[in-house]
Design a protein around this nucleic acid. Sequence first.
DNA 1: GTAGGTGCAAATCGTTTGCTGATTC
DNA 2: GAATCAGCAAACGATTTGCACCTAC
Lengths: 155, 155
Amino acid sequence: MKENQNRLEWLVARLRERGFRLTPQRMAVLRILVASEGHPSVEMIHERVRAEFPMVSLATVYKTVHLLKEIGEVLELAFGDDHRRYDGNRPRPHPHLICVKCHSIADVDFAGLAELPDEIAHNSGYQILNHRLDFFGICPACQAQVPHASDRRYD
Amino acid sequence: MKENQNRLEWLVARLRERGFRLTPQRMAVLRILVASEGHPSVEMIHERVRAEFPMVSLATVYKTVHLLKEIGEVLELAFGDDHRRYDGNRPRPHPHLICVKCHSIADVDFAGLAELPDEIAHNSGYQILNHRLDFFGICPACQAQVPHASDRRYD
DNA sequence: GTAGGTGCAAATCGTTTGCTGATTC
DNA sequence: GAATCAGCAAACGATTTGCACCTAC
């Protein structure tokens, strides 16, 4: 995909200009991050990276994702239950729809939220740096499933 | 305070009607939760409870807060860095202002967000159960501080 | 009297870190 | 060639849990 390629080149350029080295392990993580449509966890990234590079350690994936987060090129979505998901394609804050059944995460494109931070800043006196908007619910696919008694889950 | 008293009685009634016992430890946690203006962590609740009841264990505070969360009478705000804060007074979702310097958490009263979940539900097909809106920034008090070189923090 | 609660210490689990040897630049 | 990075295993730290004793009802 063209836009993935562009995004990958962008990330490589950002790392290069800050003097970070481009190891095969890092490149593999970058490629997976850029190719991921959903919002993978570090564990998921690690599994996919291992499919091509079986020798990459989990620690290295953690370090690379953390590095990308630090330079503002990956958006981290942390949840209470020790669960973190990452978006390497849209690192700016944007609202998400999170399915509490299948744990999928989808982006929401919703106009009218763009001015919200400024408005809150003006009303509160806070200097707003960042924000986060998440909706928790049940996705259409999970709603369509007729649950068997054995796999009912209410989490 | 009158409203705290009412809230406390409400919580006691909710626990009673579900058959939960009202131990002195639980009552102490309830009282602290209801009296807390900010959004305390379990650790903070534990410290304050110990001021009156030095024998209350941290595990019990965890269990009580978890219980209240389960019955929907406490709002949990979980952050990525293994940090959770609790609001025992307004358990329904509402936006928050979080200072990245002093870690204080303030409520935002902002009209015009009430219909947002319904609107998102309609547009996306999700059944929305819950949501969360947080703004991260620097509170007026922290903005006013002239930072010494030694305590500059950029987190 | 008994189901449920408390306190303690140990277990848990995602994430981070210290160290040594390898690699990118 | 030197500073940075990868891999490993051990450390970390907030939260949870198993269990023996206790207590609210």
